[in-house]
């Protein structure tokens, strides 16, 4: 039984995460192998890969967990693979455009927001909730785009991984474990992708130092906390605003889905604060908004994001725990863990 559960977790968590990492990471590896002069086209392709990494992980996990779904889907939450698929296509197309970050943000969020407003309708929805979904996609997209413009690619991937991990835990607390597992697969994909990009960036920095040892260069502190000859050179493939806005839009839709099917003690504020956690990264880096150099590195920003998400998750878990305890004793063991044979 334990072997079967381990294989199941491998299928729904690690294989989809690996698919996302491959899609997002191969492009960055190819960029690292190219000479600096030939990089422009491959950077653009790698940015498309980064935009697709999280959606691919989600879609793979959904397929493994739930199987293919029809159209129209039999259950409302089965619209998610379609919504995420459309988001991936829009995010990838807009990522490939040579447009200012605010144009990318606007295109992605208006298109995805409008489609979500019309087609992503969960139980107990009403026109206000649908307008709210549109508004939250636009606002969260702006926030995440601003973060992507300011922070290094490692930081964006790490913060996104933390946010999606937080959403996944909230979904499990809301008694929606199957979606929680899928979202955690996305978080794993983003986390591993971030680490891989970090390693490649470090190697790039080392290569640049080794290549030009005689020339005095301006040593600056890169956004990732890496000291390298020139900040831009360390960053092989920066996230596009479109990719970050796509992640934000997917996060908003998943959070609303978790809220709509909530059978736990997770409050709307919990979802909102977790989604907005990267905002705190901007708070500690206000000058970046004006285009100045970052004053804190990836560890500080991701760390702050992690603290916020952890605080929210602990708060939500403590509310669930206190209510469960009041309801009654030993009978209230974790049913999902119990079904998986982990608690007994």
């Amino acid at each position: 039984m334990l072997t079967e559960v381990a294989l199941y977790l491998l299928k729904v968590l690690l294989v989809p995460a690996l698919a996302g990492v491959v899609v997002g990471g191969v492009g960055v590896m190819l960029v690292a192998r190219r000479a600096e002069a030939d990089r422009e086209q491959s950077v653009r392709r790698a940015q498309i890969g980064q935009a697709l990494a999280a959606p691919i992980a989600f879609l793979a996990s959904f397929l493994m967990e739930t199987g293919p779904v029809g159209l129209p889907p039999a259950e409302r939450w089965h619209v998610l693979p379609y919504a995420v698929g459309v988001a991936a296509i829009v995010g990838a197309i807009v990522s490939s455009m040579r447009a200012a970050w605010w144009v990318q943000w606007l295109i992605v969020t208006v298109i995805l927001g409008a489609l979500a407003w019309k087609f992503v309708v969960f139980p107990a929805s009403n026109p206000y909730i649908q307008v709210g979904l549109f508004g939250s996609i636009v606002l969260m997209g702006l926030l995440w785009s601003a973060v992507a413009r300011d922070a290094c690619s490692v930081g964006v991937a790490m913060m996104a991984a933390i946010v999606f991990a937080g959403l996944g835990v909230l979904m499990i607390l809301a008694n929606f474990a199957s979606l929680g597992v899928m979202v955690i697969a996305v978080a794993i994909a983003l986390g591993v992708l971030g680490m891989a990009i970090g390693v490649l960036n470090l190697r790039e920095a080392a290569r640049l130092r080794a290549a030009a040892p005689a020339q005095p260069v301006a040593v600056e502190q890169a956004p990732g906390g890496v000291t390298c000859p020139a900040e831009a050179a360390c960053e092989l493939v920066p996230w596009t605003a479109a990719a970050a806005a796509t992640l934000a839009a997917i996060g908003c839709v998943l959070a609303l889905c978790g809220h709509a099917y909530n059978y736990g003690e997770v409050r709307p504020m919990h979802w909102a604060v977790v989604l907005a956690a990267p905002f705190f990264a901007l708070l500690v880096c206000k000058p970046c908004l004006r285009g100045a150099k970052p004053i804190v590195g990836v560890a500080w920003r991701a760390g702050l994001c992690l603290v916020v998400v952890l605080a929210v998750v602990i708060n939500a878990a403590s509310q669930s725990g206190s209510d469960g305890g009041a309801a009654g004793g030993a009978a209230d063991s974790d049913p999902m863990a119990d079904m998986l044979g982990e608690s007994k």
Partner: peptide, 20 residues
């Protein structure tokens, strides 16, 4: 079921999807 947590789990979309 005698367990509020399990009741909520069963009502959720993983099983009966009581909201729909």
């Amino acid at each position: 079921t005698g367990s509020e947590k399990l009741d909520n789990n069963l009502k959720g979309p993983t099983f009966f999807n009581e909201k729909e």
